[in-house]
């Protein structure tokens, strides 16, 4: 008899870390993401500014 409850183990894709609901929430939380947008821009600008002569 076929079952849909096959074990999701021993597959390569079953080993990596996956985000929890909380992580997913913060990834799309507008206020937090706006703050991250500023930080990421600053970090990328540092790379651009000091990355070449």
């Amino acid at each position: 008899m076929e079952t849909n409850n096959k074990p999701k183990a021993y597959y390569e894709e079953s080993y990596p870390p996956v985000p929890t609901k909380s992580v997913k929430f913060w990834r799309s939380c507008m206020l937090w993401q706006f703050y991250r947008f500023i930080i990421l821009n600053y970090k990328v600008m540092k790379i651009v500014a000091f990355g070449h002569n």
Partner: peptide, 11 residues
């Protein structure tokens, strides 16, 4: 830096 989020899409 290595992060995933909506901010990345805006960027």
């Amino acid at each position: 830096v290595g992060e995933i989020g909506l901010a990345g899409h805006w960027m």
